[in-house]
């Protein structure tokens, strides 16, 4: 560019490999081992302990990893695409739409398999999220806080429709179980579809920079030659698939996508590609920790992880609001 001699080599723009990441992996690994060893059944002593371990503990722990990573990543992508810190699948109605889709499939095709149920959930989540995004682009809201409020209202309306349909079709109890996200029923043979979200994480990692650029706004994104609409569509599709699959297998995991990206952003900024490993790790850590609390707090019974997450998430959400207020 200029004739000045090139400056000495500087640290690169983004460091992907960070030794601290290894520490994070270690901590999360330890949590997962604890998760594998926690439970009422004596997997070491009992004669069929090994089999029980493979049927319940391993699937449950894998599900924690996949769901935790997927939901926190969804939150981050949504926050970039909407340029709003308070947006995530449970504050935009995406989860409620997925629930409605799931219910719809159950009502229309009572015997539908897990693939059909997921298809319904993903499709409904996609439509609902697109409607919400279209609304956000049409009206420019003065305060960023209005967005999650509108989203939560939007979700509540969709949730009421689900409740009404469930009442009419005698499925209220099923609905309650789905919405209370829980890893209790994650067993071998029922959770495998969650591996789809692992593929979503990989895709997001590959196209991460597009999402970060889209997060700079439509004008800057267009300036550097990005097809903004296509990226929004792609992002919404990926979010819908991940949310739909997690909702069907696990249920509602409130606030996870809100807490994790905000905490990571405080320490590491928002470069999606270099943050993604951190976002996934923290998501796994929080969901595993909450699940462990849920499993031990009233042992031998369990409380749904969504309950613990809701309490933790609400506290963090309010802390974020207060922090945002202080910073203007």
């Amino acid at each position: 560019m200029t004739t000045t001699p090139t400056a000495p080599r500087r640290p690169p723009t983004r460091g992907l490999l960070d030794p601290r990441l290894l520490i994070g992996v270690g901590v999360v690994g330890a949590l997962l081992v604890v998760s594998l060893l926690t439970g009422e059944y004596d997997v070491v002593g009992a004669s069929d302990g090994g089999e029980m371990f493979a049927i319940t503990r391993v699937p449950r722990t894998i599900a924690l990893v996949l769901a935790g990573a997927a939901m926190s990543m969804c939150g981050l992508v949504m926050q970039l695409l909407t340029q709003n810190r308070f947006v995530e699948p449970t504050t935009t109605g995406t989860t409620e739409w997925a629930g409605l889709g799931l219910l719809g499939v159950m009502v229309v095709f009572p015997g539908a398999g897990i693939a059909a149920r997921m298809g319904g959930a993903v499709l409904a989540a996609f439509i609902g999220t697109m409607v919400f995004f279209a609304f956000l682009r049409r009206v420019s809201l003065k305060s960023s806080l209005i967005v999650p409020i509108v989203g939560i209202m939007f979700g509540a309306v969709v949730g009421s429709v689900s409740t009404f349909v469930a009442l009419q079709t005698d499925m209220l109890q099923n609905l309650g179980i789905w919405f209370a996200g829980s890893f209790t029923s994650v067993l071998r043979g029922q959770y495998e579809a969650l591996w789809i979200v692992a593929a979503i994480v990989v895709v997001v990692f590959i196209v991460a920079d597009r999402f970060t650029v889209a997060g700079l706004g439509e004008e800057i994104a267009t300036n550097v030659g990005l097809n903004y609409d296509r990226v929004i569509l792609l992002g919404t599709g990926l979010i819908a698939i991940a949310t739909g699959v997690v909702t069907v297998v696990v249920g509602n995991l409130p606030f996870l996508g809100l807490i994790v990206p905000n905490v990571v952003s405080m320490f590491r900024g928002d470069d999606l590609r270099s943050n993604l490993p951190w976002v996934c790790l923290l998501g796994i850590a929080i969901v595993t920790l909450c699940d462990l609390i849920g499993r031990t707090i009233i042992a031998p019974f369990e409380v749904p992880v969504s309950l613990i997450l809701g309490v933790v998430g609400a506290v963090v959400f309010i802390a974020l609001l207060l922090r945002q207020r202080r910073h203007g």
Binding site: T13, R14, Q79, L80, Q83, N84, R85, S144, D209, T212, V213, G215, L216, G217, I220, V224, G225, L226, S265, G269, D270, D271
Partner: peptide, 18 residues
Amino acid sequence: NHFITRLTVRQLVGFGRF
């Protein structure tokens, strides 16, 4: 140019290479 994305100067400038 208002965005909520937290980027360093170098990361932002780097997106000029997009």
